[in-house]
């Protein structure tokens, strides 16, 4: 925490936050309590594992509010608000 002009500013990467994660078809929904410092990539891998999704696929997390993909290498805490809903999306294609 940083004291700045008597205002306490919480670091976006400290502490935990709660999220809701779902798969693209909506058949699985998980409540997630995660350290804010965890990277998007790590969280995506963990959620995929918990949902028993294929391990040989790379996964992206999409913020349902903005519809945008989260940046893999950066922490969850810097990209999402507590209570956010994310969707686990495979980085694969039909062909």
């Amino acid at each position: 925490m940083v004291r700045k002009n008597e205002t306490i500013v919480e670091s976006a990467s400290e502490g935990t936050m709660h999220l809701v994660a779902g798969n693209v078809t909506g058949t699985q929904t998980l409540g997630v309590k995660v350290d804010r410092s965890v990277s998007v990539e790590s969280l995506a891998r963990s959620v995929a594992s918990r949902m028993a999704l294929p391990g040989n696929v790379e996964w992206a997390l999409r913020d349902e509010r903005s519809s945008a993909y989260l940046r893999d290498g950066e922490s969850i805490g810097t990209q999402l608000e507590p209570g956010a809903r994310v969707t686990l999306t495979p980085k694969t294609h039909l062909g």
């Binding site: 699985q28 929904t29 998980l30 409540g31 997630v32 309590k33 995660v34 350290d35 410092s37 965890v38 790590s42 969280l43 891998r45 963990s46 959620v47 594992s49 918990r50 391990g55």
Partner: peptide
């Protein structure tokens, strides 16, 4: 066992 973040960093609940 696949490598995953420490268990304490991510906790799940499901229905």
């Amino acid at each position: 066992t696949p490598d995953e973040p420490k268990a304490s960093q991510i906790q799940f609940s499901s229905r």
